Amino acid sequence: MLGELENKIHEYYNDIGNKELQKEVIYAALKEMAVICVSGLNVYMNNKAYMNNLIGQDLINDDTARHIKELLIDDCNMEEYEKYVFKKCADMERIYSKYFDSYTSVLADGRIYNTILNMYWNEDAGAWQSDGSDGWVRFTLMMPYKASKEETRMRRYIGGNRYEKAYA
């Protein structure tokens, strides 16, 4: 939990019934959820409004605020709130993955490349990896690559021979 929400909850639990503190707890929880679920997602500038709209429809809305109020104010149940945050993160991954995958392609040499990350998929490591052309090799576990069954079959065997991928 981020410090702000934790502090607001302690304040509220010491002054249960304070409607202003209730609002502050819900706001802090929504803010925490947004940070946890959306931090680190890269979006091209021309797609920003579109992604903000998708995220707003699913993450930060009246239903979410009502659910947080029920969990943190009515039930005082931090454990269920944390489970709810993880569920919302899974929802964000589902939404973002469609966008992310649209910028992922298989290059002529068989390597899988994502333009958002400017990285290649390293299947052995199960991570995205930069090519090291700037003297640094960077990795991220963000958004694992999910190839279609046909694509996987095509990449593994070319002309009856096992295709060995070359990664940086």
Rank of each mutant, 00 (worst) to 15 (best):
D124M: 09
D134G: 02
N53A: 10
G132N: 01
T115N: 07
Y27H: 10
A34Y: 08
K149T: 03
M78A: 05
H67C: 13
A28G: 05
I26Y: 03
K69A: 09
Y44P: 05
T115E: 14
N47K: 14
E123D: 15
W136D: 04
A90S: 14
K146L: 11
V35E: 14
N42F: 13
I158L: 11
I55A: 00
D75H: 11
K149C: 01
I95C: 15
L72P: 06
K23R: 04
D109G: 04
V137R: 03
E123N: 13
Q57G: 06
M119N: 10
Y120Q: 03
F100K: 03
C89E: 15
L107E: 07
K23T: 01
T140I: 07
R156G: 09
K83W: 11
N46P: 08
C37I: 00
W136A: 07
C76P: 11
E32V: 00
S133V: 12
S148H: 09
V35H: 01
V35N: 03
V25Y: 00
D131A: 06
K146S: 09
Y103M: 07
V38F: 13
T115D: 11
C37E: 01
N114W: 12
M45N: 12
W128A: 01
T140W: 10
A65W: 12
D74A: 08
K69E: 10
L117D: 05
R155D: 08
N47W: 07
N114T: 02
M154R: 12
R94G: 10
M78F: 05
K31P: 10
M78G: 04
N118G: 09
A65D: 08
R111C: 07
Y84Q: 01
K146N: 14
E70V: 10
M92Y: 05
S39T: 00
C37Y: 02
N77R: 00
I55G: 00
M51Y: 07
K48F: 09
Y96W: 15
D124W: 13
Q57S: 01
E123H: 12
Q22W: 04
L71C: 11
R153G: 06
I116C: 04
N42R: 15
K88Y: 03
N42G: 13
N61E: 09
V43T: 07
R153L: 05
L54H: 11
K83G: 12
C76F: 13
A65G: 12
E151H: 04
Y120P: 00
K146F: 15
S39K: 02
C37H: 00
K83A: 13
C76R: 14
K87Y: 13
Y84R: 12
V85P: 15
Y44D: 01
A29I: 00
E79I: 08
G132D: 04
K31D: 01
A29T: 01
K83E: 08
D75K: 08
I116P: 05
Y50G: 05
G132K: 02
L30V: 03
Y145P: 08
V137G: 06
N118W: 14
Y50H: 03
K83L: 11
S130Y: 01
C37A: 02
N114P: 14
C37F: 02
S105K: 09
S148N: 09
E151L: 10
I95E: 15
I60Q: 12
M154N: 05
Y84A: 04
N53V: 01
